[in-house]
Nucleic acid binder design. Sequence first.
DNA 1: GTTGAGCGTT
Length: 143
Amino acid sequence: MTPRALLSRLRLAPLLHDGHHLRRLVSAAAASPPDEAPPGAPPPPPSNSRLFVAGLSWSVDERSLTDAFSTFGTVTEVRIIYDKNSGRPRGFGFVHFSNDHEAKCAKDAMDGKVMLGRPLRISFALEKVRGAPVIVPRLSTVK
DNA sequence: GTTGAGCGTT
């Protein structure tokens, strides 16, 4: 009995014929670069076109926020965060701009400005948003 | 009818 016939009897032949599976896995692993930043690298910058706006008065709504920020660029989305259970505003929100330049201008201009009696605290948003493009900071991206 | 640092309700 040939070795091949023996493999057939053991039902191992399909596995050997399916070598492309293994090849796909190997090439995929080789194609994806390591996402581990080298030690000593600067921390990845937060997202640039979305602003985290804190220090909001309880009575500020999306309309007034949009009005306040749209003078610096195109506001694509404004979101004020409310408590899931109580429904009360949590006093912060997010302002999305169409590009990062507008966001930076708005941040520089509005950070620290008082709105309805309370000073705004603005910084760039951290977490990505559902549906937004996933931006993985790489060394070539950092200037 | 209140409160005050923070990173997002589907």
